[in-house]
Every structure is written in structure tokens, then in C-alpha cells.
């Protein structure tokens, strides 16, 4: 992006922050292709990138009134897109991890064995908590204590699973 466009973006953002609606359309027309290109570069998948760009665009206009007039807009705009892309990637990763939930009963046998293998690396207390939740096995302790223990065990399991199967 050249210097003139950068300056123009800052002027438009300052105008929007001041409530000048005439800056809306040119700003929208300049931002949409720019955001889409950035998101496609970072995410790869065009459809997901468009979703991220769309969310980022809405966020920019939602927060345009908070922009400090006279500041450089480009770093802030890029940060908004980057943040949306990161959020989308994290959501995708979480969905992948949730797909491993054995409660659904859809986990293939090989995955089930992998779950058991990772489970074996956890402490006995964590194993008891997770087995009670997943396989309905008996576990000693009050329900509140068990729930807290299960939360901690689940996060430890996720971390261990990520290090075993998803190093990225």
C-alpha cells in the first residue's frame, strides 16, 4: 500500500471518528478488497478468509468512533484483520478438538485408542475424573469437587492431545 493511500485511510478514519458520514462509502470501498486480500493471504481458504474479512470490516466500523483523530490508521486496521483471522483459526482448532469428544460416540476405533493412549499419560486422579465423565465409571467425591477436577483434567488432556497429535 502506497503512502498516499495510507494517508487517505487515516483521514477517512479520522472523519468517521468525528461523525462525518461522507467518509463511509470511500472507506468501505477501499477496505473490503484490502481486508479480503490480507485474510486470504493469512488463512488460505477463500471462503473462511472472506468470513474473517467480513467480521473485521464490521468491527472496524463498529469501533470507528473510538479512533483517535490524527493517528495512523493502517496498523490498527491490519491488527483488526489479524485478530479476526487468529480468532477464526482458534475456533477451527477448538472445533477439531471437540470432534474428539467420545461422548458423541462417533469417534472411530483408531481415534478411540489414541484417546486411551493420551489418557494413560495423565495422573490417576485425572484419569478417574475423565473416565467417570466419558465412560460413566464410578468416581469418589462430592459433585462440585468432581466437576472442578473434570475441568482441570479436560484442559490437561487437551494440552497433552495437542502436543501428541497437533504440534502446530
Amino acid at each position: 500500500m502506497d503512502e498516499a493511500t495510507r494517508r487517505q485511510l487515516s483521514l477517512w478514519m479520522s472523519a468517521l471518528a468525528e461523525g462525518d458520514r461522507t467518509a463511509f462509502d470511500p472507506m468501505f470501498d477501499a477496505l473490503w478488497p484490502f481486508f479480503r486480500a490480507l485474510a486470504r493471504k493469512w488463512i488460505g481458504d477463500p471462503q473462511e478468509a472472506d468470513d474473517a474479512a467480513q467480521q473485521a470490516l464490521l468491527k472496524v466500523f463498529e469501533r470507528a468512533s473510538e479512533f483517535e483523530a490524527g493517528c495512523e490508521a493502517l496498523p490498527w486496521l491490519v491488527a483488526v484483520v489479524a485478530n479476526e483471522c487468529r480468532t477464526l483459526r482458534q475456533r477451527k482448532k477448538r472445533r477439531r478438538e471437540e470432534a474428539l469428544d467420545v461422548d458423541t460416540g462417533t469417534t472411530p476405533e483408531s481415534d478411540f485408542e489414541a484417546v486411551l493412549e493420551v489418557l494413560g499419560h495423565l495422573s490417576t486422579q485425572d484419569q478417574i475424573a475423565l473416565r467417570a465423565a466419558w465412560f460413566g465409571e464410578a468416581a469418589p467425591g462430592a459433585p462440585v469437587t468432581l466437576r472442578k477436577r473434570l475441568q482441570r483434567a479436560t484442559s490437561r488432556f487437551r494440552a497433552l492431545w495437542s502436543s501428541h497429535h497437533d504440534p502446530s
Binding site: L16, G19, F24, F28, W32, Q47, D50, D51, Q54, L57, L58, F61, E62, R63, A64, S65, E66
Partner: peptide, 22 residues
């Protein structure tokens, strides 16, 4: 997928934020 009313959505988001600020 690109929402057909994206411009309108962005404008609404902007006006809502201005109203909150006001």
C-alpha cells in the same frame, strides 16, 4: 460467503456505535 448486505450491516454497526458514544 460474502453477505449481500455487508455495506448496510457496516453502516448499521457504525450508527449504533455512534449512538452508544452519544
Amino acid at each position: 460467503m460474502i453477505h449481500p448486505d455487508l455495506r448496510q450491516q457496516a453502516r448499521t454497526a457504525y450508527e449504533h456505535s455512534r449512538l452508544r458514544l452519544a
